[in-house]
Amino acid sequence: MAAVQGYGALLGEIKERIRSAQYEALRAVNRELIALYWDIGHLIVTRQQGESWGKAVVQNLARDLKEEFPRITGFSSSNLWRMKLFYETYRDSEKLAPMVREIGWSHNLAILEKCKDDLEREFYLRMTRKYGWTKNVLIHQIENQTYEKTLLSQTNFSETLPESLQHQAKLAVRDEYVFDFLELDDKHSERELEHALIGKIDTFLRQMGGMFAYVGSQYRLEVGDQEFFIDLLLYHRRLRCLVALDLKIGRFQPEHVGKMQFYLAVLNDQVRLEDENPSIGIVLCKSKDKMIVEYALKDSDKPIGVATYRMVSTLPQELKGQLPAPEQIAQFLENVE
C-alpha cells in the first residue's frame, strides 16, 4: 500500500513538472515571437527613414516573405504595418517595452488598437499578465472601461485593511459593473436581480473580475435569536477573504454602510477561518451620489466598497475626464504585479 502511495506521489510530481516545463516553453516561444515582431518593426522604421522608402516596401516584403516561408503565417502586409506601429508605440518606453513580451501578440494588438495612452496600456498589460486574460476577456474588459472604473472606485480600503492587502482589494472592486448578460426589465426587484445573477453565475463571476468564487446566496447569519441573510457571499482567491454583496435596486443610502458593517463583523467572528483575511463588503446599487458615499465610508471601520450596476453596455465617455492625475495613476499601477 505504501509503495502504491509513493508511486502516486511520484507520478503527481512528474506531471506537475511536465506542465511547468510546457508552460515555460510556451512563454519562451511567445517572448521570441514578440521579439521577432519588434525587430521587424524596428527594421522597417529604420530603413524607411534612412532609405526614404515609401509604402510599397511593406507590400513587397509581405509578398517575398510569403514566397520564402509559405507555411508560416503572420507576415501579411497588414501585420507588418502593425509590427511597425508596435515598435513605434513602445520604443521610447523603458517601462512598457519589456512588458509587451509577457503577453501574446493578439493581446498586444488589442491593447495597441483600443487604448488611448501609455497609462491605460500599462494597466491592461499588467492585468493581462496578472490574471491570464484571454484575448476575448481582455477586449471585453477594455470595452467596458475597466481601467477607468477601477481608478474611480469608491472604497475605504486604505483606512481599514493592512497595507499588504489594500492594493489587491482596490483592484477587486470597480466603480461600476455592466450586467448586459441579464434578461431583466427596468422594474426588477432585488430578489429577481439576485436570482438572475445566480442563474448566470459563471458569467457574473467573470464580470466581477475572475478571482471570485461563489459561496452562496441568502447566506444565513444567526445573531442572538434573530436570523440575517446576505444576498450573495463570494470568496476572493487572491485576497483569501470572504466578500459579502448587498444588492440594492435603488439609489445608495448611508444606512447601507451600517448594515454591511454588521454583516462583516458577524462573518469575521462566526464564519471566517483562522488563516483568512478580514471579510470585505460591496454594496451594489443602481445609482449613487459620490459625495454621499464618501461621507458614509469616512468613519467606517470595516472594508467596504460602493459600486453601481447597469444592464446596457453603452458607456459614458466622460469617465476619462474624471480620472486621477497621471502621477497618481502611475503610482497605482506600480503595485499591479
Rank of each mutant, 00 (worst) to 15 (best):
G224I: 07
E337H: 13
W81R: 12
D175R: 11
E122F: 05
E327N: 10
F157H: 00
D186M: 06
N268K: 05
R126H: 05
G6H: 09
K248T: 00
S164H: 08
E24C: 08
V271I: 15
V57I: 15
D246L: 10
Y124W: 03
A325P: 01
L10V: 14
H256F: 15
N144P: 06
I44Q: 03
H140R: 15
A21S: 12
A110Y: 00
R82I: 13
A307F: 09
D64C: 03
V58I: 15
Q141N: 14
N156T: 08
L161M: 10
F86P: 07
S78M: 04
L65N: 00
M260I: 04
K149E: 02
L152M: 14
L233Y: 06
C241H: 01
D186G: 07
I198L: 14
E192Q: 15
E183C: 04
L43W: 13
A307M: 09
V223R: 10
E192C: 07
W53D: 06
W53L: 03
D39W: 09
L323M: 05
L245E: 04
D269R: 13
D299R: 08
A307Y: 00
Q49C: 11
L182N: 03
N60C: 08
M1F: 14
N277V: 06
F75C: 06
N60H: 13
F75P: 01
G199L: 11
M83F: 15
L65Y: 01
I34W: 06
E148H: 15
V58R: 07
L96T: 03
S300V: 01
D269A: 15
M311I: 11
E51W: 01
E222D: 10
R310S: 14
R91L: 05
L119M: 00
Q154T: 08
N268A: 04
R63A: 12
L85K: 15
R126N: 00
E102F: 01
V271G: 04
R126K: 13
S76I: 09
F86M: 10
E327A: 09
L319W: 12
Y87C: 08
D180K: 10
F157E: 02
I142L: 01
L315N: 10
L319V: 09
L239G: 03
T128L: 06
M1S: 15
L182K: 03
T46I: 09
A35W: 11
Q59F: 07
W53T: 04
M127S: 07
Y124F: 12
G74S: 02
G305H: 00
R31A: 05
F212A: 06
N79H: 04
P303A: 10
E120C: 00
S76V: 10
E51V: 02
L119R: 07
A25E: 12
